[in-house]
């Protein structure tokens, strides 16, 4: 339980809480990027360099920016004063708290959690590449297919339908 871990965990959780609690949607996304960056730093701290950098590249660079674009295209000029939470917010937060209680209980009481840190090196890029090209080549191809389908699907779904024949 090092100081680095505590700081990074605090940043990550502060970012995610702010994401879900803020009124302005753009502020939410900016807080979200903070949370994602904190998660990436946690990955780096765990020695998973490739995953941490991919996390920043994909989430901060693509997902957050995409969300911002959609917010810009859908937001109304006048800010509403009504609640940002839906009518069944109480039930929702109760369920979430319950889930956390169960998960926390399971984690604390589990025997695997008290495992000591094995002394080992980080995940270098070359073994990851080798694994992607040999053992995980089928999932990789399926992933490529999925991403292509998602690309085409997103364009088709979001594209403006042409009115008339102009």
């Amino acid at each position: 339980m090092t100081a680095t871990f505590l700081i990074l965990a605090a940043i990550t959780i502060a970012g995610t809480v702010a994401t879900m609690a803020m009124r302005n949607l753009v502020h939410c996304v900016l807080a979200l990027t903070l949370g994602f960056a904190g998660l990436a730093a946690l990955y780096l701290q765990l020695g998973a360099q490739f995953v941490g950098l991919t996390q920043i590249l994909v989430y901060v660079g693509a997902v957050a920016i995409l969300a911002v674009f959609v917010i810009m295209m859908t937001q109304k000029p006048a800010q509403t004063t009504e609640s940002i939470f839906s009518s069944f917010w109480l039930a929702g937060s109760l369920i979430a708290a319950l889930v956390f209680a169960v998960l926390g209980w399971a984690i604390v009481s589990s025997s695997t959690s008290s495992r000591p840190l094995p002394p080992q090196a980080e995940a270098a890029v070359r073994p990851i590449g080798d694994a992607l090209m040999h053992r995980f080549v089928l999932p990789l191809e399926i992933m490529g297919l999925l991403l292509t389908a998602a690309l085409i699907g997103a364009v088709v779904v979001a594209m403006q339908e042409k009115r008339g024949t102009a």
Partner: peptide
């Protein structure tokens, strides 16, 4: 000398987009 140095470069480059959006918005 990062193991994934080029990836680091591009990951940091995406922060520029975020800064530009923050400035404009």
């Amino acid at each position: 000398d990062l193991n994934a140095g080029v990836l680091f470069f591009f990951a940091v480059g995406t922060l520029v987009e975020l800064a530009v959006f923050m400035a404009g918005w």
